[in-house]
Simulated assay, not measured.
Amino acid sequence: MLTLDNINSLYGKSHVLFDVSIDVREGEIVTLLGRNGAGKSTVLNSILGLVPNVIGKIKFNGISLVGLLTHEIVELGVCLIPEQRDIFQILSVEENLQIAQKGNSQWEIKDIYELFPRLEERKKNGGGQLSAGEQQMLAIARALLNGPKILLCDEPSEGLAPVIIQEIVSTLQRIKESGIPILLVEQNLRVCEKLADRHYIFEQGRVIHEFKKDDFLSPESAAIKYKYLSV
């Protein structure tokens, strides 16, 4: 569905990604793991055409993304939930949802309120009045209303309380069950272990290891996780 083949990404003279090859298949959640600065978010930005110089092949459903403008990539169904959430602070929850709704989306606002009852309770509140967890729910909701064919999620659990993280995990599982694959950048290993079918570990802009779900949970993987993922 989504494939990156020997991608090299550069910001000016700064070479950030080196020969990165990953893929996301239908019905999967795939995580990108690694310490800060390992290149994970640059992968997402490269897919979306936000990196000035990308060398290699990026294809989504057989269509080459390299050289396309960001809005053209989004029109193909590639949707980002950014780390900063980027909701409209001065608009109400419902207004944030209304401007995101696309006619071809399988999700409608009523579905969003079923998924996130808290957003319905606060639908008249401004985006800036929401808690961090509620803003994350709103960011996910807006992405779904855009009619995504794949979701790119950047650190969805960052800064959230454990009870809210569990709610976000359940939501991402439901999204996967609806048929939308997810490429997930995440630091919380427990979240990754619960959600993902496969994992890529990054170090200094390179893919160091790839794990299937069961292999990632095995005792044999502990030393690798400690070496590349521990703080």
Rank of each mutant, 00 (worst) to 15 (best):
G103Q: 07
Q84Y: 09
G126L: 15
I112Q: 08
E134W: 04
K149S: 00
E121N: 13
A141L: 12
I150Q: 02
T70M: 13
K110R: 14
I99N: 06
L145Y: 03
Q84V: 04
K149E: 05
A100P: 01
I63N: 07
G147L: 04
L48E: 07
N125A: 02
S92G: 03
N125Y: 10
K124R: 12
T70A: 14
V74F: 09
G49V: 06
L65F: 06
I164L: 01
I99F: 12
A143D: 08
I165G: 03
A143S: 10
G77T: 06
I164W: 07
L183P: 08
D86K: 15
A100C: 14
G128F: 11
E72T: 10
Y113C: 08
L160S: 10
S92L: 11
N188W: 04
L69T: 07
N61V: 11
T70F: 13
L97W: 00
S92H: 00
Q98S: 12
L97M: 13
G103F: 01
K176V: 09
A141N: 09
Q135D: 01
I81V: 10
Q166V: 11
T70P: 14
L160N: 04
Q106L: 15
L91P: 15
C153L: 11
E155V: 02
V78L: 04
D86F: 14
I140E: 06
P82G: 00
L189F: 03
E108S: 14
L91C: 15
E155S: 01
R122Y: 09
C153F: 05
V74H: 02
K123I: 09
T171A: 15
G128D: 03
I182F: 12
Y113R: 11
N53M: 12
V78R: 02
S157G: 02
G159D: 08
E72S: 07
S170P: 07
S64M: 05
I175N: 10
A100Y: 01
S178L: 05
G62W: 11
K123Y: 11
R190W: 03
M137I: 00
L115S: 00
R190L: 07
F116S: 02
I63T: 10
I112E: 11
G179Q: 07
I180E: 01
E177F: 09
A139C: 13
E120S: 11
N96G: 06
P181Y: 10
A132K: 14
G133Q: 04
L97H: 08
E75D: 15
I73C: 07
E75G: 05
